Computed example of a mutant assay.
Amino acid sequence: MTPHKIPESVLVVIYTPALDVLLIERAKQPGFWQSVTGSKDTLDEPWVETAIREVQEETGIVVGSPEVPEPALADWAVENVYEIYPVWRHRYAPGVTHNTERVFGLCVPHGTPVTLAPREHTQYVWLPYQEAADRCFSPSNAEAILQLPQRITLR
């Protein structure tokens, strides 16, 4: 039996200095475009480790490499709590209805190669941040993308 998902996840907005944002399309939900997301593997896994792992698993981008040094990943210290869609609740322990999502930003050089996990995502696109926000299925994902101009001036 597969263990239950932990209702704590990361959202990582990957973008270039020109504010082009990487979106990936979910394999099992065509038309569902999003940034990198993923749950903690253990309750005590630090948020930053979850973010680094999920970015590498879903895009092949290695945080901590010479091309994408660790300081390129910023913990925005924002947590969204939202209701888990009923269609996905079976993945969680009985009675779990809400997830806490920690938001990160990751600035990568223009032209950074992307290698998708084919079972999870079918295609990717780089879009100007406003277009990317419009294409996102998740309201919290769209909101995070729209915060990019303010977030990069705070760094």
Rank of each mutant, 00 (worst) to 15 (best):
P30H: 09
G31W: 13
G31R: 08
F32S: 13
W33E: 10
W33Y: 15
S35T: 15
S35Y: 03
V36R: 04
V36E: 09
V36L: 08
G38T: 12
G38D: 07
S39R: 05
K40M: 05
D41N: 07
T42E: 12
T42R: 14
T42C: 02
T42K: 11
T42H: 14
L43E: 15
E45I: 04
E45C: 01
E45K: 02
P46I: 03
P46T: 03
W47S: 12
W47E: 11
V48G: 07
V48E: 15
E49N: 14
E49M: 12
T50I: 09
T50L: 06
A51V: 02
R53E: 07
E54T: 02
E54Q: 10
E54G: 00
E54I: 01
V55D: 10
Q56T: 10
E57G: 00
E57C: 01
E58Y: 01
T59P: 15
G60M: 04
G60K: 08
I61Q: 06
V62W: 01
V63C: 05
V68Y: 04
V68R: 07
E70D: 03
P71M: 03
P71Q: 01
D75Y: 08
A77D: 13
A77K: 15
A77I: 01
V78L: 15
E79C: 12
N80K: 11
N80H: 15
V81H: 12
Y82F: 13
I84S: 11
Y85I: 04
P86N: 06
W88A: 14
W88D: 15
R89C: 06
A93D: 09
A93T: 03
A93R: 13
P94C: 05
P94R: 04
G95I: 07
V96H: 02
T97G: 00
T97P: 00
T97M: 01
H98Y: 11
T100N: 02
E101H: 00
R102G: 00
R102K: 14
V103F: 04
L106S: 07
V108F: 09
H110T: 15
H110N: 09
H110S: 14
G111S: 03
G111V: 03
V114L: 11
T115E: 14
T115C: 09
T115V: 14
L116M: 11
A117R: 15
A117K: 15
P118D: 11
E120K: 13
E120C: 06
E120R: 13
E120M: 11
H121T: 07
H121G: 00
H121V: 00
T122W: 00
T122R: 15
T122H: 06
T122P: 00
Q123V: 08
